[in-house]
Design a protein around this nucleic acid. Structure first.
Lengths: 211, 211
DNA sequence: ATTGTAGGCTAATTTGGATTAGCCGTCAAG
DNA sequence: CTTGACGGCTAATCCAAATTAGCCTACAAT
Protein backbone atom coordinates (compact mmCIF):
# COMPACT_ATOMS: atom_id res chain seq x y z
CA UNK A 1 0.00 0.00 0.00
CA UNK A 2 2.99 2.17 0.59
CA UNK A 3 4.00 1.34 -2.97
CA UNK A 4 1.46 3.79 -4.26
CA UNK A 5 3.23 6.59 -2.51
CA UNK A 6 6.70 5.40 -3.40
CA UNK A 7 5.73 5.54 -7.04
CA UNK A 8 4.95 9.22 -6.75
CA UNK A 9 8.19 9.82 -4.93
CA UNK A 10 10.41 8.08 -7.44
CA UNK A 11 8.49 9.51 -10.36
CA UNK A 12 8.96 13.02 -9.02
CA UNK A 13 12.68 12.43 -8.68
CA UNK A 14 12.93 11.27 -12.26
CA UNK A 15 10.64 13.93 -13.69
CA UNK A 16 12.66 16.62 -11.94
CA UNK A 17 15.88 15.32 -13.44
CA UNK A 18 14.80 14.51 -16.99
CA UNK A 19 11.37 15.94 -17.55
CA UNK A 20 8.17 14.02 -18.05
CA UNK A 21 8.74 12.96 -21.64
CA UNK A 22 12.19 11.52 -21.00
CA UNK A 23 11.17 9.30 -18.14
CA UNK A 24 9.94 5.81 -18.96
CA UNK A 25 7.35 4.06 -16.91
CA UNK A 26 9.85 1.22 -16.62
CA UNK A 27 12.38 3.56 -15.00
CA UNK A 28 9.93 4.53 -12.33
CA UNK A 29 8.98 0.92 -11.74
CA UNK A 30 12.58 -0.19 -11.47
CA UNK A 31 13.31 2.38 -8.79
CA UNK A 32 10.28 1.28 -6.86
CA UNK A 33 11.44 -2.31 -7.22
CA UNK A 34 8.60 -3.64 -9.33
CA UNK A 35 7.96 -4.19 -13.03
CA UNK A 36 6.35 -1.62 -15.26
CA UNK A 37 3.01 -3.38 -15.73
CA UNK A 38 2.57 -3.54 -11.97
CA UNK A 39 2.48 0.22 -11.86
CA UNK A 40 -0.87 0.05 -13.56
CA UNK A 41 -2.34 -1.61 -10.50
CA UNK A 42 -1.81 1.72 -8.77
CA UNK A 43 -2.21 4.35 -11.46
CA UNK A 44 -4.19 4.30 -14.65
CA UNK A 45 -1.42 5.79 -16.76
CA UNK A 46 1.83 7.67 -16.74
CA UNK A 47 -0.11 10.90 -17.01
CA UNK A 48 -2.14 9.91 -13.96
CA UNK A 49 1.10 9.63 -11.99
CA UNK A 50 2.06 13.11 -13.04
CA UNK A 51 -1.35 14.44 -12.11
CA UNK A 52 -1.19 12.78 -8.72
CA UNK A 53 2.13 14.49 -8.08
CA UNK A 54 0.65 17.86 -8.88
CA UNK A 55 -2.31 17.17 -6.64
CA UNK A 56 -0.13 16.11 -3.77
CA UNK A 57 1.85 19.28 -4.17
CA UNK A 58 -1.28 21.34 -3.92
CA UNK A 59 -2.05 19.67 -0.63
CA UNK A 60 1.40 20.35 0.72
CA UNK A 61 1.50 23.95 -0.27
CA UNK A 62 -0.34 25.32 2.68
CA UNK A 63 2.20 23.82 5.05
CA UNK A 64 5.09 25.77 3.70
CA UNK A 65 4.40 29.27 4.90
CA UNK A 66 6.57 28.58 7.93
CA UNK A 67 9.66 28.34 5.80
CA UNK A 68 9.65 32.04 5.31
CA UNK A 69 10.05 32.89 8.97
CA UNK A 70 13.17 33.57 10.91
CA UNK A 71 13.47 30.32 12.79
CA UNK A 72 10.92 28.30 10.86
CA UNK A 73 9.05 27.20 13.97
CA UNK A 74 7.41 30.25 15.50
CA UNK A 75 3.96 31.07 14.33
CA UNK A 76 3.59 34.15 12.18
CA UNK A 77 1.45 35.46 14.97
CA UNK A 78 4.39 36.70 16.99
CA UNK A 79 5.08 39.37 14.45
CA UNK A 80 6.37 41.39 17.36
CA UNK A 81 9.91 40.23 16.83
CA UNK A 82 10.04 41.81 13.40
CA UNK A 83 9.74 45.21 14.99
CA UNK A 84 13.17 45.11 16.55
CA UNK A 85 15.02 42.80 14.22
CA UNK A 86 18.81 42.77 14.01
CA UNK A 87 20.94 42.40 10.92
CA UNK A 88 21.80 38.87 11.96
CA UNK A 89 18.14 38.07 12.26
CA UNK A 90 17.51 39.50 8.83
CA UNK A 91 20.28 37.29 7.49
CA UNK A 92 18.66 34.37 9.26
CA UNK A 93 15.40 35.23 7.54
CA UNK A 94 17.04 35.21 4.14
CA UNK A 95 19.15 32.14 4.84
CA UNK A 96 16.20 30.24 6.13
CA UNK A 97 14.14 31.01 3.11
CA UNK A 98 17.00 30.17 0.81
CA UNK A 99 18.07 26.94 2.49
CA UNK A 100 14.53 25.71 2.83
CA UNK A 101 13.82 26.24 -0.84
CA UNK A 102 17.20 24.83 -1.77
CA UNK A 103 17.38 21.74 0.39
CA UNK A 104 13.90 20.61 1.20
CA UNK A 105 13.90 17.54 -0.91
CA UNK A 106 10.32 17.57 -1.99
CA UNK A 107 10.26 21.29 -2.69
CA UNK A 108 13.46 21.12 -4.67
CA UNK A 109 12.37 18.28 -6.89
CA UNK A 110 9.02 19.81 -7.45
CA UNK A 111 10.50 23.15 -8.37
CA UNK A 112 12.86 21.59 -10.87
CA UNK A 113 10.03 19.65 -12.42
CA UNK A 114 7.98 22.81 -12.74
CA UNK A 115 10.94 24.58 -14.28
CA UNK A 116 11.13 21.95 -16.98
CA UNK A 117 7.41 21.61 -17.56
CA UNK A 118 6.28 25.21 -17.12
CA UNK A 119 5.79 25.88 -20.83
CA UNK A 120 3.75 22.74 -21.49
CA UNK A 121 0.77 23.79 -19.51
CA UNK A 122 -0.45 27.21 -18.56
CA UNK A 123 -1.61 25.85 -15.21
CA UNK A 124 1.88 24.77 -14.31
CA UNK A 125 3.22 28.16 -15.32
CA UNK A 126 0.72 29.80 -13.00
CA UNK A 127 1.63 27.48 -10.15
CA UNK A 128 5.29 28.28 -10.64
CA UNK A 129 4.81 32.01 -10.59
CA UNK A 130 2.51 31.88 -7.61
CA UNK A 131 4.76 29.61 -5.60
CA UNK A 132 8.15 31.09 -6.37
CA UNK A 133 7.31 34.68 -7.15
CA UNK A 134 4.01 36.05 -5.94
CA UNK A 135 3.67 34.17 -2.67
CA UNK A 136 7.20 34.85 -1.43
CA UNK A 137 6.94 38.50 -2.44
CA UNK A 138 3.63 38.80 -0.71
CA UNK A 139 4.69 37.12 2.50
CA UNK A 140 8.03 38.82 2.77
CA UNK A 141 6.44 42.09 1.77
CA UNK A 142 4.23 41.69 4.79
CA UNK A 143 7.19 41.04 7.07
CA UNK A 144 9.30 43.84 5.69
CA UNK A 145 6.25 46.06 5.86
CA UNK A 146 6.07 45.38 9.58
CA UNK A 147 9.67 46.39 9.93
CA UNK A 148 9.05 49.60 8.06
CA UNK A 149 6.07 50.39 10.23
CA UNK A 150 8.15 49.71 13.30
CA UNK A 151 10.86 51.98 11.98
CA UNK A 152 13.49 49.28 11.66
CA UNK A 153 13.66 49.79 7.91
CA UNK A 154 12.77 52.75 5.78
CA UNK A 155 11.63 53.04 2.19
CA UNK A 156 9.21 54.87 -0.03
CA UNK A 157 8.07 51.69 -1.71
CA UNK A 158 7.81 48.47 0.27
CA UNK A 159 7.05 46.39 -2.80
CA UNK A 160 10.22 47.37 -4.58
CA UNK A 161 12.16 46.94 -1.36
CA UNK A 162 10.76 43.43 -1.15
CA UNK A 163 11.76 42.82 -4.74
CA UNK A 164 15.26 43.96 -3.85
CA UNK A 165 15.28 41.52 -0.98
CA UNK A 166 13.86 38.53 -2.77
CA UNK A 167 14.99 38.75 -6.41
CA UNK A 168 18.65 38.06 -5.60
CA UNK A 169 17.61 35.12 -3.46
CA UNK A 170 15.49 33.79 -6.27
CA UNK A 171 18.28 34.17 -8.77
CA UNK A 172 20.78 32.41 -6.54
CA UNK A 173 18.29 29.62 -6.07
CA UNK A 174 17.95 29.05 -9.80
CA UNK A 175 21.72 29.02 -10.11
CA UNK A 176 22.04 26.34 -7.45
CA UNK A 177 19.32 24.21 -9.02
CA UNK A 178 21.26 24.31 -12.25
CA UNK A 179 24.76 24.07 -10.83
CA UNK A 180 24.75 22.64 -7.34
CA UNK A 181 28.52 23.02 -7.13
CA UNK A 182 28.02 26.77 -6.83
CA UNK A 183 26.08 26.50 -3.63
CA UNK A 184 28.86 27.59 -1.28
CA UNK A 185 29.53 30.63 -3.42
CA UNK A 186 25.82 31.38 -3.51
CA UNK A 187 25.56 31.26 0.26
CA UNK A 188 28.33 33.79 0.61
CA UNK A 189 26.69 36.03 -1.94
CA UNK A 190 23.41 35.64 -0.06
CA UNK A 191 24.91 36.92 3.13
CA UNK A 192 26.69 39.80 1.44
CA UNK A 193 23.44 40.66 -0.30
CA UNK A 194 21.47 40.81 2.92
CA UNK A 195 24.12 42.81 4.73
CA UNK A 196 24.12 45.35 1.97
CA UNK A 197 20.32 45.27 1.83
CA UNK A 198 20.25 46.04 5.53
CA UNK A 199 22.80 48.79 5.21
CA UNK A 200 20.79 50.38 2.43
CA UNK A 201 17.33 50.15 3.88
CA UNK A 202 18.04 50.34 7.60
CA UNK A 203 16.82 53.54 9.14
CA UNK A 204 19.98 55.55 9.34
CA UNK A 205 19.82 57.20 12.76
CA UNK A 206 22.86 59.29 12.08
CA UNK A 207 21.32 60.68 8.94
CA UNK A 208 18.09 61.37 10.73
CA UNK A 209 19.84 63.15 13.56
CA UNK A 210 21.93 65.29 11.26
CA UNK A 211 18.97 66.70 9.38
CA UNK B 1 19.28 25.95 -49.74
CA UNK B 2 17.48 28.35 -47.48
CA UNK B 3 15.47 25.36 -46.30
CA UNK B 4 18.36 24.24 -44.18
CA UNK B 5 18.19 27.42 -42.22
CA UNK B 6 14.43 27.48 -42.01
CA UNK B 7 14.53 24.05 -40.41
CA UNK B 8 16.66 25.39 -37.59
CA UNK B 9 14.37 28.34 -37.19
CA UNK B 10 11.16 26.36 -36.99
CA UNK B 11 12.76 23.69 -34.84
CA UNK B 12 13.93 26.31 -32.38
CA UNK B 13 10.44 27.73 -32.18
CA UNK B 14 8.97 24.33 -31.44
CA UNK B 15 11.71 23.25 -29.02
CA UNK B 16 11.26 26.48 -27.08
CA UNK B 17 7.54 25.88 -26.74
CA UNK B 18 7.41 22.16 -26.04
CA UNK B 19 10.91 20.96 -25.35
CA UNK B 20 12.97 18.65 -27.50
CA UNK B 21 11.25 15.40 -26.60
CA UNK B 22 7.76 16.68 -27.30
CA UNK B 23 8.50 17.94 -30.77
CA UNK B 24 8.10 15.51 -33.64
CA UNK B 25 10.27 15.65 -36.69
CA UNK B 26 7.06 15.75 -38.69
CA UNK B 27 6.01 18.94 -36.84
CA UNK B 28 9.17 20.69 -37.85
CA UNK B 29 8.84 19.52 -41.42
CA UNK B 30 5.25 20.66 -41.65
CA UNK B 31 6.14 24.16 -40.57
CA UNK B 32 8.89 24.30 -43.10
CA UNK B 33 6.44 23.09 -45.72
CA UNK B 34 8.04 19.74 -46.52
CA UNK B 35 7.59 16.13 -45.40
CA UNK B 36 9.48 14.59 -42.54
CA UNK B 37 11.74 12.33 -44.60
CA UNK B 38 12.92 15.33 -46.60
CA UNK B 39 14.42 16.79 -43.45
CA UNK B 40 16.99 14.06 -43.57
CA UNK B 41 18.40 15.51 -46.77
CA UNK B 42 19.54 18.42 -44.61
CA UNK B 43 20.26 16.94 -41.21
CA UNK B 44 21.30 13.48 -40.22
CA UNK B 45 18.88 13.23 -37.32
CA UNK B 46 16.64 15.13 -34.95
CA UNK B 47 19.52 15.38 -32.54
CA UNK B 48 21.67 16.90 -35.29
CA UNK B 49 19.11 19.65 -35.69
CA UNK B 50 19.28 20.39 -32.01
CA UNK B 51 23.06 20.44 -32.09
CA UNK B 52 23.07 22.78 -35.05
CA UNK B 53 20.85 25.17 -33.13
CA UNK B 54 23.24 25.19 -30.22
CA UNK B 55 26.18 25.76 -32.52
CA UNK B 56 24.49 28.62 -34.29
CA UNK B 57 23.76 30.18 -30.94
CA UNK B 58 27.40 30.01 -30.01
CA UNK B 59 28.25 31.94 -33.14
CA UNK B 60 25.68 34.59 -32.39
CA UNK B 61 26.70 35.12 -28.81
CA UNK B 62 29.52 37.51 -29.43
CA UNK B 63 27.19 39.88 -31.24
CA UNK B 64 24.98 40.48 -28.27
CA UNK B 65 27.16 42.52 -25.99
CA UNK B 66 25.65 45.64 -27.49
CA UNK B 67 22.29 44.89 -25.99
CA UNK B 68 23.55 45.79 -22.58
CA UNK B 69 24.33 49.39 -23.45
CA UNK B 70 22.20 52.43 -23.06
CA UNK B 71 21.10 52.94 -26.63
CA UNK B 72 22.24 49.66 -28.06
CA UNK B 73 24.23 51.28 -30.86
CA UNK B 74 27.15 53.14 -29.33
CA UNK B 75 30.33 51.21 -28.90
CA UNK B 76 31.30 50.34 -25.36
CA UNK B 77 34.37 52.42 -26.02
CA UNK B 78 32.65 55.68 -25.17
CA UNK B 79 32.42 54.69 -21.56
CA UNK B 80 32.66 58.39 -20.86
CA UNK B 81 28.92 58.81 -20.82
CA UNK B 82 28.58 56.50 -17.86
CA UNK B 83 30.45 58.97 -15.74
CA UNK B 84 27.67 61.52 -15.79
CA UNK B 85 24.62 59.35 -16.28
CA UNK B 86 21.15 60.53 -15.35
CA UNK B 87 18.38 58.53 -13.75
CA UNK B 88 16.56 58.43 -17.05
CA UNK B 89 19.63 57.06 -18.72
CA UNK B 90 19.94 54.43 -16.04
CA UNK B 91 16.33 53.46 -16.69
CA UNK B 92 17.14 53.33 -20.38
CA UNK B 93 20.01 50.99 -19.58
CA UNK B 94 17.72 48.66 -17.66
CA UNK B 95 14.88 48.90 -20.13
CA UNK B 96 17.15 48.24 -23.04
CA UNK B 97 18.59 45.18 -21.45
CA UNK B 98 15.18 43.95 -20.44
CA UNK B 99 13.44 44.59 -23.73
CA UNK B 100 16.25 43.14 -25.76
CA UNK B 101 16.24 39.94 -23.77
CA UNK B 102 12.47 39.86 -23.77
CA UNK B 103 11.69 40.65 -27.38
CA UNK B 104 14.60 39.65 -29.49
CA UNK B 105 12.99 36.72 -31.14
CA UNK B 106 15.99 34.49 -31.43
CA UNK B 107 17.25 35.23 -27.95
CA UNK B 108 13.86 34.63 -26.44
CA UNK B 109 13.27 31.30 -28.08
CA UNK B 110 16.74 30.16 -27.28
CA UNK B 111 16.41 31.15 -23.66
CA UNK B 112 13.14 29.29 -23.29
CA UNK B 113 14.62 26.22 -24.87
CA UNK B 114 17.56 26.37 -22.48
CA UNK B 115 15.19 26.78 -19.58
CA UNK B 116 13.44 23.56 -20.51
CA UNK B 117 16.53 21.58 -21.41
CA UNK B 118 18.97 22.87 -18.80
CA UNK B 119 18.81 19.75 -16.61
CA UNK B 120 19.37 17.32 -19.46
CA UNK B 121 22.89 18.32 -20.18
CA UNK B 122 25.45 19.96 -17.98
CA UNK B 123 26.77 21.90 -20.96
CA UNK B 124 23.41 23.55 -21.49
CA UNK B 125 23.23 24.41 -17.81
CA UNK B 126 26.61 26.09 -18.06
CA UNK B 127 25.58 28.01 -21.15
CA UNK B 128 22.46 29.20 -19.41
CA UNK B 129 24.26 30.46 -16.34
CA UNK B 130 26.98 32.12 -18.37
CA UNK B 131 24.58 33.82 -20.72
CA UNK B 132 21.88 34.93 -18.34
CA UNK B 133 23.75 35.28 -15.09
CA UNK B 134 27.50 35.62 -15.23
CA UNK B 135 27.88 37.61 -18.42
CA UNK B 136 25.23 40.21 -17.61
CA UNK B 137 26.56 40.58 -14.08
CA UNK B 138 30.06 40.97 -15.37
CA UNK B 139 29.23 43.49 -18.06
CA UNK B 140 26.89 45.54 -15.96
CA UNK B 141 29.30 45.33 -13.07
CA UNK B 142 31.83 46.96 -15.31
CA UNK B 143 29.44 49.74 -16.25
CA UNK B 144 28.24 50.35 -12.74
CA UNK B 145 31.84 50.21 -11.61
CA UNK B 146 32.60 53.07 -13.96
CA UNK B 147 29.79 55.05 -12.43
CA UNK B 148 31.09 54.40 -8.96
CA UNK B 149 34.58 55.45 -9.96
CA UNK B 150 33.16 58.58 -11.50
CA UNK B 151 31.25 59.28 -8.31
CA UNK B 152 27.80 58.97 -9.88
CA UNK B 153 26.97 56.01 -7.67
CA UNK B 154 28.36 54.93 -4.35
CA UNK B 155 28.67 51.57 -2.70
CA UNK B 156 31.02 49.45 -0.66
CA UNK B 157 30.51 46.43 -2.88
CA UNK B 158 30.02 46.86 -6.59
CA UNK B 159 29.24 43.19 -7.14
CA UNK B 160 26.34 43.19 -4.75
CA UNK B 161 25.17 46.48 -6.14
CA UNK B 162 25.19 44.87 -9.58
CA UNK B 163 23.26 41.94 -8.22
CA UNK B 164 20.70 44.39 -6.85
CA UNK B 165 20.47 45.98 -10.27
CA UNK B 166 20.24 42.82 -12.32
CA UNK B 167 18.47 40.19 -10.19
CA UNK B 168 15.09 41.97 -10.32
CA UNK B 169 15.45 42.36 -14.08
CA UNK B 170 16.25 38.67 -14.39
CA UNK B 171 13.30 37.68 -12.27
CA UNK B 172 10.91 39.87 -14.24
CA UNK B 173 12.25 38.33 -17.41
CA UNK B 174 11.50 34.80 -16.26
CA UNK B 175 8.01 35.91 -15.27
CA UNK B 176 7.36 37.31 -18.73
CA UNK B 177 8.69 34.20 -20.44
CA UNK B 178 6.24 32.19 -18.42
CA UNK B 179 3.31 34.59 -18.48
CA UNK B 180 3.60 37.06 -21.34
CA UNK B 181 0.40 38.75 -20.24
CA UNK B 182 2.27 40.19 -17.29
CA UNK B 183 4.66 42.14 -19.46
CA UNK B 184 3.08 45.53 -18.96
CA UNK B 185 3.08 45.08 -15.23
CA UNK B 186 6.69 43.92 -15.38
CA UNK B 187 7.74 47.00 -17.30
CA UNK B 188 6.24 49.25 -14.66
CA UNK B 189 7.94 47.29 -11.93
CA UNK B 190 11.20 47.54 -13.88
CA UNK B 191 11.03 51.29 -13.93
CA UNK B 192 10.09 51.55 -10.26
CA UNK B 193 12.94 49.20 -9.47
CA UNK B 194 15.51 51.28 -11.27
CA UNK B 195 14.25 54.54 -9.79
CA UNK B 196 14.55 53.10 -6.34
CA UNK B 197 17.93 51.58 -7.21
CA UNK B 198 19.10 54.98 -8.29
CA UNK B 199 17.70 56.65 -5.19
CA UNK B 200 19.49 54.13 -3.02
CA UNK B 201 22.86 54.02 -4.66
CA UNK B 202 23.13 57.54 -6.05
CA UNK B 203 25.78 59.56 -4.27
CA UNK B 204 23.73 61.56 -1.86
CA UNK B 205 25.26 65.02 -1.99
CA UNK B 206 23.09 66.21 0.82
CA UNK B 207 24.32 63.45 3.08
CA UNK B 208 27.91 64.06 2.12
CA UNK B 209 27.58 67.77 2.82
CA UNK B 210 25.92 67.28 6.16
CA UNK B 211 28.65 65.03 7.53
C1' DA C 1 -12.16 -23.56 4.59
C1' DT C 2 -13.35 -20.41 0.90
C1' DT C 3 -13.19 -16.61 -1.43
C1' DG C 4 -12.04 -12.35 -3.28
C1' DT C 5 -9.04 -8.76 -3.75
C1' DA C 6 -4.59 -6.45 -3.73
C1' DG C 7 -0.56 -6.45 -5.99
C1' DG C 8 3.04 -8.78 -8.40
C1' DC C 9 4.84 -11.18 -12.88
C1' DT C 10 5.58 -12.58 -17.94
C1' DA C 11 4.20 -12.30 -22.34
C1' DA C 12 1.73 -10.00 -25.68
C1' DT C 13 -0.14 -5.95 -28.11
C1' DT C 14 -0.31 -1.32 -29.82
C1' DT C 15 1.24 2.73 -31.24
C1' DG C 16 3.60 6.58 -32.28
C1' DG C 17 7.31 8.47 -34.23
C1' DA C 18 12.30 8.40 -36.07
C1' DT C 19 14.64 6.85 -39.74
C1' DT C 20 15.54 4.41 -44.35
C1' DA C 21 14.64 2.89 -49.13
C1' DG C 22 13.92 4.00 -53.30
C1' DC C 23 11.78 6.87 -56.80
C1' DC C 24 11.41 11.31 -59.38
C1' DG C 25 11.82 16.03 -61.26
C1' DT C 26 14.85 20.01 -61.93
C1' DC C 27 18.63 22.36 -63.23
C1' DA C 28 23.53 23.65 -63.71
C1' DA C 29 27.90 22.13 -65.61
C1' DG C 30 30.31 19.71 -68.99
C1' DC D 1 21.80 16.63 -74.53
C1' DT D 2 23.10 14.15 -70.68
C1' DT D 3 24.50 13.52 -66.19
C1' DG D 4 24.72 13.98 -61.49
C1' DA D 5 23.64 16.08 -57.29
C1' DC D 6 20.16 18.44 -54.86
C1' DG D 7 16.00 18.21 -52.61
C1' DG D 8 11.34 16.59 -52.53
C1' DC D 9 7.85 12.54 -52.10
C1' DT D 10 5.53 7.95 -50.77
C1' DA D 11 5.84 3.81 -48.80
C1' DA D 12 8.19 0.91 -45.89
C1' DT D 13 10.80 -0.33 -41.72
C1' DC D 14 12.15 -0.38 -37.05
C1' DC D 15 11.93 0.16 -32.44
C1' DA D 16 11.18 1.81 -28.11
C1' DA D 17 7.85 2.54 -24.73
C1' DA D 18 3.05 2.59 -22.99
C1' DT D 19 -0.47 -0.27 -22.07
C1' DT D 20 -3.28 -4.74 -21.78
C1' DA D 21 -4.09 -9.71 -20.99
C1' DG D 22 -3.99 -13.17 -18.24
C1' DC D 23 -1.99 -15.71 -14.66
C1' DC D 24 -0.38 -16.47 -9.75
C1' DT D 25 0.36 -15.81 -4.63
C1' DA D 26 -0.69 -14.07 -0.21
C1' DC D 27 -3.78 -12.95 2.96
C1' DA D 28 -7.85 -10.85 5.17
C1' DA D 29 -12.59 -11.34 5.86
C1' DT D 30 -16.64 -14.12 6.05
Amino acid sequence: MDTKHRILDEALTLFSEKGYANVFVADIAERVGIKAPSLYKHYKSKQAIFNAIVEEMNRRFSEEAGALRIDGTNAAADAEIYKHISEDELIALGNNLFLYFLHDDYTKRFRKMLTIEQFHDKKLADVYTKKYVDDPLSYQGMLLGLMVTAGVLQTEDVNIMTLHFYAPIYMLLTICDREPEREAEALKTMEAHIRQFNRIYARDEELIQSK
